[in-house]
Deep mutational scan, measured.
Amino acid sequence: KYLVLALYDYQEKSPREVTMKKGDILTLLNSTNKDWWKVEVNGRQGFVPAAYVKYL
């Protein structure tokens, strides 16, 4: 498993997404889509914009 760092705040806009705050450390679950990565944060799984996170 990889960890990624939230570069920006992101507010979920659909039930498939998750909210994150700048500085959050997220567990990367799937990065096959170049635009949306599946992550786990605070016990929830969902998608965030790939451009908003970077590998640690």
Rank of each mutant, 00 (worst) to 15 (best):
K54N: 09
Y52N: 05
K1C: 13
G46P: 00
V39C: 05
L3I: 10
L56P: 06
G43S: 07
L7H: 03
T27Q: 12
L5Q: 12
Y55F: 15
T19C: 06
W37G: 00
P15M: 08
N30H: 08
Q45V: 14
L7K: 07
A50K: 07
Y10A: 01
Y8K: 13
L56K: 06
N33A: 09
Y8N: 10
D24G: 03
E17Y: 05
S14M: 07
E17A: 05
E40S: 10
K1Q: 13
D9H: 05
K21A: 10
K34R: 11
D24L: 04
V18I: 15
A6E: 01
D24E: 11
R44Q: 09
K54C: 15
K22F: 05
D24R: 02
Y8Q: 14
G46N: 01
D9P: 05
V41H: 14
K34C: 10
V41L: 15
Y55V: 15
Y8L: 12
L5G: 04
L28K: 01
S14W: 06
T32C: 14
Y8M: 14
L3T: 09
Y55R: 13
N33I: 06
V18T: 06
R44K: 12
L29V: 12
K21N: 10
R16A: 13
W36E: 04
W37Y: 10
V39Q: 00
Y52I: 07
V39I: 08
K13Y: 05
M20D: 00
K22L: 05
L3V: 08
N33E: 10
L3H: 11
Q45A: 13
V48M: 02
V53Y: 01
D35I: 12
A6Q: 01
G43N: 08
T27W: 11
T27N: 10
G46W: 02
K54F: 09
V18A: 05
P15D: 14
E40A: 10
D35F: 14
T27I: 15
E40G: 06
A50Q: 06
K34M: 09
N30L: 09
Y8E: 12
E17R: 04
G43L: 05
Y55P: 14
L7N: 04
R44W: 04
K1T: 14
L28I: 07
K1F: 14
K1V: 13
S31Y: 09
D35P: 03
S31E: 10
E17P: 04
V41P: 00
W37F: 09
V53I: 09
K1S: 11
Y52Q: 07
G46H: 02
D24P: 00
G46Q: 01
K21S: 10
G43M: 05
D9S: 08
K21H: 12
V53E: 00
A6L: 03
T19I: 03
W36S: 03
L28D: 00
N42D: 13
L3A: 07
S14Q: 09
N33M: 09
S31K: 12
T32E: 14
K13N: 10
P49G: 02
W36M: 07
I25M: 08
M20G: 00
Y8G: 07
V4W: 08
Y2R: 13
E12M: 13
K34S: 13
I25C: 06
K1R: 14
V53G: 01
V4E: 00
K38I: 14
Y8T: 10
K21W: 08
Y52P: 00
D24S: 07
N30W: 07
P15T: 11
D9N: 07
V48D: 01
